[in-house]
């Protein structure tokens, strides 16, 4: 790689990145009521009794199974935060290039309309990217990486909109135009070298 543009960026440690609070799973709660104190009980004690179906963990989890977990900002963040920066062995999350407050979901069309009641809600996800320095020439590549990742990972009812955060880049307007232009994005993805860089960025996801 050529000259490194920003050799000493600010980084956040992985433990401080926003994450979904780990909820203690129901199963461990009911099976080991006293946490550590129950650790003396071997796992085999929890083997479900085949003759007593109500004791198996499945039935317990079945009402849980109904619960819907919608796609939210945190989930979008989890999809794009582990993307590698093209010039550092660090993730976009730890470099604060992508930030949780800069991700917004807005539903463009309500889930049902009169003509087609089963049509799903169209949702637009907007991600604002903050380059580490204002003249970063890799901003386009990073934006493209985020875009590709989301297009691969989100269901088709999502519209992806990736832009540079206002006031964080000297040529933000140009970059935004590039990222918003479907033709140009498609053309960029035909480029072998660029795809190589992108694949490397997305490797760790």
């Amino acid at each position: 790689m050529s000259e490194i543009l920003n050799a000493n960026p600010t980084i956040r440690s992985a433990a401080d990145l926003p994450s979904r609070r780990r909820e203690p799973t129901k199963k461990t709660k009911t099976q080991r009521p006293f946490g550590l104190l129950s650790s003396t009980i071997p796992d085999s004690a929890y083997t479900p009794d085949p003759f007593n179906p109500s004791s198996s963990p499945e039935s317990e989890g079945s009402d849980n199974d109904e619960e819907v977990e919608p796609i939210d900002e945190q989930e979008i963040y989890d999809l794009i935060a582990p993307i590698q920066d093209p010039e550092h062995p660090l993730t976009l999350g730890s470099l604060s290039v992508v930030n949780l407050p800069d991700i917004t979901l807005s539903s463009t069309l309500p889930p049902t309309s009169l003509s087609n009641p089963s049509r799903p809600a169209i949702t637009t996800v907007t991600v604002l990217v903050t380059p580490t320095i204002t003249h970063c020439s890799l901003a386009t590549v990073i934006g493209l990486g985020v875009r590709v990742r989301l297009e691969q990972a989100l269901p088709p009812r999502f519209r992806v909109d990736v832009r540079i955060k206002e006031g964080t880049h000297s040529t933000a307007e140009q970059v935004n135009r590039q990222l918003g232009d479907k033709e140009r994005v498609a053309a960029a993805l035909e480029n072998g070298t660029l795809m190589g860089v992108l694949r490397k960025m997305l490797e760790g996801c």
Binding site: E67, V68, E69, I71, E75, L79, P120, Q152, A153, L154, P155, R157, L202, C205
Partner: peptide, 17 residues
């Protein structure tokens, strides 16, 4: 990718990739 469960979606993303 639009499954109701988060961990299923996550696996779907990985599997598709």
């Amino acid at each position: 990718l639009d499954d109701a469960k988060r961990h299923v979606r996550r696996m779907a993303v990985e599997c598709r990739a």
